[in-house]
Computed example of a mutant assay.
Amino acid sequence: MKNLLTLLIISFLGFSALTYANPVVDKPMAEMQQPPVININSADSEMLSTLPGIGKKKAQAIVDYRAENGEFTELSDLANVKGIGKKLVAKLEGKVSL
């Protein structure tokens, strides 16, 4: 009985130490690390392909469009790139900069 009580106390102490030792639990969601914002006017195709909905082909299309037409002046200009529509542009809001 004494061994069982000792085991329960040790288990409780170990569990509570694990619960309170995690610093991520104490941080608000806003303070958690956010993915970096990617500049669509300077990023290479590899960096652009990390964006949601942008694969290697679309990333290269962005780079090619930028080379032919100059820098993007508005986020909505991305919709002029072949394979990128308004819905995808909306998904990228907050994830890209100019």
Results as ranks from 00 to 15, higher is better:
M29L: 14
L4G: 10
L75G: 08
I10R: 07
K86M: 05
S97I: 09
P35H: 13
F72C: 03
M47F: 07
F12I: 12
I38L: 13
N39Q: 06
K57D: 11
V24A: 15
N41T: 03
E74S: 11
M29T: 06
S97W: 09
F15Q: 11
L7R: 11
R66G: 09
A67L: 06
G85C: 09
V89G: 00
K86D: 03
G14C: 13
K82Q: 14
I54N: 05
L51P: 01
L5H: 12
S97R: 14
E93L: 00
D64W: 10
L98Y: 06
L92P: 01
N41L: 08
D26V: 13
N3M: 10
L4N: 13
Q33K: 15
G85N: 07
V89A: 02
S16K: 14
V24G: 05
N39H: 08
A21Q: 05
L48I: 03
G55Y: 12
T6E: 09
L92S: 00
E68P: 01
S49Y: 14
A59E: 06
M47L: 15
L75V: 02
K87H: 10
K56E: 13
N69Y: 12
E46C: 02
M32E: 08
K87M: 12
V25S: 10
V89R: 03
T50W: 11
V37E: 07
S97M: 14
S76W: 01
F72N: 04
V81H: 04
G94W: 09
D77G: 13
Y20A: 11
K82A: 10
P35C: 08
L18F: 15
S76L: 03
A79W: 00
G53E: 04
K95V: 00
L48A: 02
P28L: 14
Q33I: 15
L88Y: 07
M32G: 06
S49K: 12
P23M: 12
N69G: 06
I9E: 06
Q60L: 12
I38S: 08
K2Y: 10
P36W: 08
A43N: 09
I40A: 04
N69E: 08
T50I: 04
M29V: 05
P36K: 13
M32P: 01
A21S: 12
E93Q: 02
S45Q: 13
V37P: 07
P52S: 11
K86S: 05
A61G: 03
A43P: 02
D44W: 09
G14K: 04
A79Y: 02
P28D: 14
S49P: 05
I38C: 10
N69H: 15
N41F: 09
D44H: 03
V89Q: 01
K86Q: 09
I9H: 06
E46H: 08
D77A: 13
Y20T: 11
G70P: 06
I54W: 04
K57C: 02
A59S: 14
L18W: 13
P23R: 12
L75R: 01
V37D: 09
L51A: 03
P23S: 10
G14S: 14
E31F: 07
L8T: 11
V96E: 00
A61L: 11
K95I: 00
Y20G: 06
L7P: 02
K2R: 15
V25D: 09
K91T: 11
E31Y: 08
D77S: 04
E68M: 04
V63D: 05
